[in-house]
Design a binder for these strands. Structure first.
Lengths: 151, 151
DNA sequence: ATTATTTATATCGTTCACGATGCAAATATA
DNA sequence: TATATTTGCATCGTGAACGATATAAATAAT
């Protein structure tokens, strides 16, 4: 018999993994319309918050490695969403800036967050319960983040 | 100025995406010790629950596509964790069975769920709050699952 | 001023994840 | 029984993720 701790239905990580994949799939048709993937959409959100950032800052904000972000940014540059240029002050840095096409996507995608958000609502996920969901996920992220960086 | 709905800190999906990646990273050292990846560990849990399943049932249980699971299973076969054989009743099916090596991993990994589980605990994530976290994640998964299959 | 170390980014190799498509076995229909 | 459709799995191409490693610029140490 399987040990109970191994039952999939007792696994938090499997739920997170599945929920994350399914939401990404839910985004897909709306983002694909603009030629974007979900990670690319995350990069846009980082740059909409603050334009002209070095690769490292973008990676840190998304908690990704630079070796994940670099090719992602290159693809987005090829698509004309942003530009990559050597930093003048520090020649090691690559400064990433939005193009007009990249900035304009904020208008074109304006309805996406609301569409996704409302599609998730159900009995256990409501405007009243979402703050506690955020708090628990932030707790998990904070907990694991420390573990990583302390080593 | 950025529209507030685009702020990363207001995004549920980004939290799920990050939490999922960080937990997978937390599993990594323990699984790598046995030559496993996290998705491969999920496959093992499916087969520990019920051995000798066709590819399709494993994919459905993990909510993955067969074109993701097939190469995953092939790698696990190469590593000697399982066998793949044509179904006798239905020759289209590939029946996946654990080897002794695959079954024995349940003992070797016995402490993993507890190690991961306890490493996540924090102020907002406690044995008392985890059921509501499960309920919300299950709600999201159920909601999106329906959306997919209804189309 | 040299040399050593750190930092910022990139390259490489492997493993997912998935949309699109292909193929053969099984089943349904004519 | 012949043909059409469905089903189960696989192949292909692209885009992440990430560990390991490389490279060049910046900074620290000698």
């Amino acid at each position: 018999m399987i040990k109970p701790q191994f039952k999939l239905d007792n696994q938090l990580c499997f739920r997170l993994y599945t929920a994350s994949r399914l939401i990404t799939q839910a985004y897909h048709p709306m983002l694909a319309e603009q030629g974007l993937t979900y990670p690319q959409y995350l990069v846009l959100m980082v740059l909409w918050e603050k334009d002209a950032q070095p690769v490292n800052d973008i990676a840190k904000r998304l908690r990704l490695e630079t070796n994940t972000v670099t090719p992602l940014l290159k693809r987005m540059e090829t698509e004309g969403f942003l530009t990559r240029s050597r930093g003048r002050e520090d020649a090691r840095q690559i400064i990433v800036k939005l193009t007009k096409k990249g900035r304009d996507l904020q208008e074109k995608l304006a309805d996406v967050p609301e569409a996704i958000g409302s599609s998730l609502l159900c009995e256990s996920v409501t405007p009243a319960t979402i703050p506690s969901l955020y708090a628990m996920l932030d707790g998990i992220i904070h907990q694991l983040q420390n573990k990583q960086t302390n080593q």
